[in-house]
Design a protein around this nucleic acid. Sequence first.
DNA 1: GGCAATAAGGAAACCGGTTACCTAAGAGGA
DNA 2: TCCTCTTAGGTAACCGGTTTCCTTATTGCC
Lengths: 337, 337
Amino acid sequence: MATIYDIAKEAGVSAATVSRVLAGSNHPVREETRKRILNLADEMGYRPNTIAKSLTKKTTKTVALLVPSITNFFYTQIADVICDLLAEEGYSVFLCNTKRQIEKECLHIETLIERRVDGVIFSSTRTKPEDNLINQQNIDKLKKYGISTVAFGSHFKNTSQVYINTYRGAFEATEHLIGLGHRRIGFIDGLAVGTRQSRRRGWRDALSAHNLPVLDELVASGNLEVDGGAAAADALWQSSEPPTALVVANHLMALGAMGELKARGYTVGEDVSVVGFDDSEISALVDPPLSVVRQPTEEVARAASQLLLKQLAGDGELELVELETKLIIRASTARKK
Amino acid sequence: MATIYDIAKEAGVSAATVSRVLAGSNHPVREETRKRILNLADEMGYRPNTIAKSLTKKTTKTVALLVPSITNFFYTQIADVICDLLAEEGYSVFLCNTKRQIEKECLHIETLIERRVDGVIFSSTRTKPEDNLINQQNIDKLKKYGISTVAFGSHFKNTSQVYINTYRGAFEATEHLIGLGHRRIGFIDGLAVGTRQSRRRGWRDALSAHNLPVLDELVASGNLEVDGGAAAADALWQSSEPPTALVVANHLMALGAMGELKARGYTVGEDVSVVGFDDSEISALVDPPLSVVRQPTEEVARAASQLLLKQLAGDGELELVELETKLIIRASTARKK
DNA sequence: GGCAATAAGGAAACCGGTTACCTAAGAGGA
DNA sequence: TCCTCTTAGGTAACCGGTTTCCTTATTGCC
């Protein structure tokens, strides 16, 4: 592949001159020389070598998007926007998918440091409560090596982040169900159970606020996938007195839970009410259309990109953007019979 | 950040020795020296600079996954597997999302050449018939710059590829509907309409094989998203004699079409039958559960990764892997009333 | 005409590794 | 004892750009 030295030789000038022309330096070059070089570059199919440029410039114009599951609609909606916004600014995006395995998160972090990415947009992988510590260490490690970070979806120290107020979302969803007359409202959580989880806290606090008991038997957890939601619903309905309504902490699990309830002969939206998290075109198309706590994915992606670009532009401030969810009521929630 | 020169200075050896130890060269180094260097590297938090390595090695250990829509389930399922398999071999993956804009495809191609990626797994962006030529030019350009390619989803020259026999899939789906007694079977195509499209050919040939007329009024096309499917169904049902069954060339459009038919008061799976393409957990959860032509996404991803790795390992053969679809019959297709 | 400022371009160091080639010392064999 | 081979390590070129510093020629101004 042609290099600036090849062009320099052909043009009878030095590599420095070629570099000046092709990189658009403001160091003056005679118009005639410039034209000659540009023509040769074109003829020879020259393409600048980003790798070499990165080595001198000490910036790679690459960033990474690190997510727990790239098949999950919530993350793809975000990825879609982030890739686009960052590409506009000349960044290429490494997709790092941890498949919800903390070891993969750690491996990716190492790789990203070695690749000298300029920044990382980070959604943590967490299936056990203690993973949180590792997530934080990974963020700290990136920072230590001078890599900008923006986290979203969980709270961390030492980084810019986009925070979604899922506590309030869960609170509102639960209150919505209470308003419909439900008294036994189950909650399906992710695997990283822990009372610190904001969605679960939202559910709990809403019950308490209305003087309803918070019972352990009303909580089950699942793997954040469809089958996990089904299994969790199955567990809850083993009870002699199952819930009449359900708040589910994630989109796919809500679909799974609905499937399980249907299989048990319930009519969701009549016999049982279900509220999920995360919205997608699918939510409106299932039967019954699913009420959800919509997370503002597009805004999350925009905010995360902006926070990252700001840091990359040299603004060292750590910032926190907080976004609200929105309760979308569809037919899966109805007055208690 | 610490470099091998920093370590060399601390250890009182030359950079060459440090490089030999850290890169695991087979050039002999005394055990004591090796230990000293490894300890220092650890203490100093040394991380090899992949950029510098790439420059000398003339290989970046990066590949790109170029797809038309990263929010589409079909592509995320493939991305999930590809990222994983390639990461195992030490490759990092650039996610290039064209959002179905041919200009973005072209821009990504240029960027990838400049970044000197080792390979590209390529699913073409095509919304107009003439885009196909541009897709082929983009593949040729990558090849010209020595970048390995694997295409999937469409047919191209000059590249390894994974081909999915969607012709047969569409043929079988249509025959399935004919077997259920349907005679007016509509077809919803992508925007890149053209009789060369294999799915449409499969539909047409199945009708012909059963002596049914192939009418223009039975075909509509959409943008491959939910709303496009709805719009296309709307168009087909403007007819004085609308179809009694529908083959839809993609997953999201099938959902959209079903939504539109429901909105028009039809009971899908009774009044009208619908077969979609692409399977996902969602297909089974919508109402009625959707019959689909399942494309073997996992196999596609595995085959594409293997073909690429083979080329990257120096095997210059261009290969074609052909995979079959599978008709999954659920409740959205039923005997004609 | 003399001098400073500007235009145009070259030389070379540098980014952080890898590696071909060279040197020196010690081991082993004839 | 001499020669060869192996071990251990150093030197320096190279990958493909960027950029600082320098030189030379030209222009403008007094």
